[in-house]
């Protein structure tokens, strides 16, 4: 479904880039304009495709109710049976808030891009990008950004609603600074996750049957990023290790910025670490793709 419009836009670009009689300078100017143009086009395509799949998104949201609801009920039972009020450093309200918010934030940052990209690599669809004056990464990023516009707006409305309800039930109101920090943390978390997926996808150059692998990495990432339960559950030793990994900066961190468990200073430090990870992961993804592409071209696609 997504393929069709992509191909169309690709054709258009190549056609417009071809006129040979053009002056070099004019050509350069032209290509510059068309560069921003083509990524805008990719963005639009992503947006359109997401509209095409809107029903699926809605159902995805509805199905989010179940795991979040079940987990909340489990935590309710846990807190009811326990003699302590605070478990793993969370009181009951915080834990429920964490469960709900982590479900929503997970939806926000998880890309689901792996299969699309792996498909491009396997089916040779990548070739169409390699022979054109378009960066695959740029293309995917723009299309991805476009595809998130609608769903992310809905998710943000959802987060706001949840927070408003939480505040009504006694959660401390959020300062504007914290909202700003959360927004930054969330956007950066999405970037970390995108780069992470993109880097993992480079494995499709090597592994023949990759879909299983994505299920595993998806699950592991979800557990390690605090998408299932707060990372405190794993104990201090493991958390020491988690600090060295990028995963916690995708779900656990933004959620804890929002629910106020992290002080503003800590949040700021976390944001810097996120930036660091983005640089590192971008480098890693770039290297992995360079290696993979070398192999890909070497095999003749």
């Amino acid at each position: 479904m997504e393929k069709h419009p992509e191909r169309g836009s690709g054709m258009r670009k190549r056609d417009s880039g071809e006129p040979g009689s053009m002056q070099p300078e004019a050509g350069a100017v032209y290509s510059k304009r068309s560069r921003s143009g083509k990524y805008a086009a990719a963005f639009k395509i992503g947006l359109q495709a997401s509209l095409e799949y809107r029903l699926q998104f809605v159902i995805g949201l509805v199905s989010l109710v179940f795991p979040v609801g079940i987990q909340s009920l489990i935590w309710t039972a846990v807190y009811r049976s326990s003699a302590q009020d605070v478990l793993y450093g969370y009181d009951y309200g915080q834990m429920i808030l964490y469960t709900i918010l982590s479900g929503i934030v997970a939806k926000f940052v998880m890309t689901q891009l792996e299969h699309t990209i792996a498909e491009d690599i396997k089916s040779g669809g990548l070739n169409t990008y390699l022979v054109r004056p378009v960066s695959y990464f740029g293309y995917r990023l723009s299309a991805y950004a476009g595809s998130r516009v609608v769903s992310d707006s809905v998710l943000i409305v959802l987060v706001t609603t949840v927070l408003l309800i939480a505040i009504r039930y006694g959660h401390t109101p959020l300062s504007p600074v914290r909202i700003g920090l959360f927004t930054a943390a969330l956007v950066l978390a999405a970037a970390v996750q995108f780069l992470l997926s993109y880097a993992i996808c480079a494995l499709a150059f090597r592994l023949a049957e990759i879909s299983y692998f994505f299920v595993i990495t998806g699950l592991v990432v979800q557990i390690l990023s605090g998408g299932m339960v707060p990372l405190e559950v794993f104990g201090e030793t493991l958390n020491g290790w988690f600090n060295l990994l990028p995963f916690k900066y995708t779900i656990y961190f933004p959620v804890n910025v929002l629910n106020g468990r992290l002080a503003e200073g800590e949040a700021l430090t976390g944001i810097f670490i996120q930036c660091g990870w983005i640089v590192l992961l971008a480098g890693a993804a770039h290297a992995a793709w360079r290696l993979g592409l070398k192999r890909y071209v070497g095999l003749g696609g």
Partner: peptide
């Protein structure tokens, strides 16, 4: 790989 996937789910 199928077994590995299931083991990952088991960990969860």
């Amino acid at each position: 790989m199928g077994i590995a996937v299931e083991i990952a789910f088991l960990c969860a």
